[in-house]
Design a protein around this nucleic acid. Sequence first.
DNA 1: ACTGGAACGAGAGCAGTGCTCTCAAATCTC
DNA 2: GAGATTTGAGAGCACTGCTCTCGTTCCAGT
Lengths: 281, 281
Amino acid sequence: MLSYLFIALIAGTLPVMDTAPTNASRTARDRARAELTREIKDEARRQLAVGGADGLSLRAVSRALGMVSSALYRYFPSREDLLTALIIDAYDSLGETAASADPGPATPTTRRWWLICTEIRNWALAHRHEYALIYGSPIPGYQAPQATIAPASRVPLLLIGVLQDAWLTGEADLPTDSRPLVPELVEQLDALRALVAAELPAAALVRALVAWTQLFGMISFELFGQLVGSVDPSGYFFDHAVHHIADQLGLRGQNRGRTTTPPDDLDRAEETTEETSRTSD
Amino acid sequence: MLSYLFIALIAGTLPVMDTAPTNASRTARDRARAELTREIKDEARRQLAVGGADGLSLRAVSRALGMVSSALYRYFPSREDLLTALIIDAYDSLGETAASADPGPATPTTRRWWLICTEIRNWALAHRHEYALIYGSPIPGYQAPQATIAPASRVPLLLIGVLQDAWLTGEADLPTDSRPLVPELVEQLDALRALVAAELPAAALVRALVAWTQLFGMISFELFGQLVGSVDPSGYFFDHAVHHIADQLGLRGQNRGRTTTPPDDLDRAEETTEETSRTSD
DNA sequence: ACTGGAACGAGAGCAGTGCTCTCAAATCTC
DNA sequence: GAGATTTGAGAGCACTGCTCTCGTTCCAGT
């Protein structure tokens, strides 16, 4: 609940990207510029999906769009800026997907947690290279620009918000065996609480952080090939771990996931573009 | 204990790399070749440390070594092969570091666990780009060659071995609230147990896997900049999480880490080469 | 309505890259 | 020592990100 406010708040502070306001643009040149910007990003995303970040070539993008390469620099001053735009879009896409997978506070928290986690993984499986772009090794040259931290915090804010909802309604309780926190960590957690989850005690917040890193650690391991030898179709392992983490979070509800659809790992044929007909499968 | 056997076993199956046997080479040409191969990798590692994988240029390496770029192709047939060699070396380096941080079964398991985890993180902090090379987004073009999976499995085998030791000596017990496993997951875990940890029950093995992903998920988040806004010097959080994971593993000992040295995060000035004098610290 | 200025696309060009090919020298093997 | 193999050097190809210039197009203020 509260976290949604902060999402909106922080999201409001970042410079407005040129995705949405294509409509209300004034001049024809502005409209053409917005559209071309979008087309460049779309084509770049397409190339990203097949070749990864390394395979993204400004010349290839401009070639696919029928323009000359130097013209592309009118829209993105460098390759890094294009990548930054793609990173922000990816964060936004994932954040929106995760948020829309949340049925809201009326649903039992354990189910909310499972739904959100599963949807995050599904997004990652469907957008492997975009996931790698934002959660993989950072592009060596540059540090994440300030504009990326707000979209990046949407997912953790959502997860923390879910836990806070459960905390406020008494649906989650702090396990009694919770380990004491060193003062330095409490200090960091207090600063964080003031920002995102004032109602959540530090001992619960640190569990949310652990759950957050655990969730994405698992997805990264699956996508980056660390699990190939062990739990190769990783859906069952993921499912189990998500339930395990829910226990760690102190969620007490019984309404767990695994409703009807088993975790399908058939979608690892992601190298083929999604528009391809799926007859051979 | 048993796991060490498997480490040696699996390590024996991978093609012998040309790092060690520089000595017993027969001809002078062979010796020169081995040395040059090592020099190339050293220089490549040096460039990796400043520019990441993207900044690694064969021409720059050959230039730094005073040779012409085409000559380098006598030693590594492509850039990917050089990267693969660096990946294997990085896995080996991390695996050896982690193994040598393990004081052995005589030490209480909780302490072993903490020592190994801390040393893994320290290695990652000291070799950020090498860590990114092996645990970050995979190089888009190629799939991990078969030769990398053996060195890659050293660390998980070590961690599982530690847990198995604790299990055999009764130092770890399965928490009673452990969640039941779906049959498909049990099947995967049984296959894995047959390979690496026959004595470990499936419910314990899956906890080890969760701990493994959790550990590296945390390190990746710290190194890849996901924690900058929240728990920025991440040492205290890491410390707490490692203890938390130890609890999740069912380790009962009290001899935890955090002995004398607080987790220092001063070493984030990693851009400076390690040969630099550390007087300023 | 016109004009000055801003934005734009095209083209050439520069320095850099991975990689291939050819050719001569060095080295090993018989 | 002769033949075979390996090595290093150089030129070259296709590609990259990026810059600069030069006309053209469009917008805005008078």
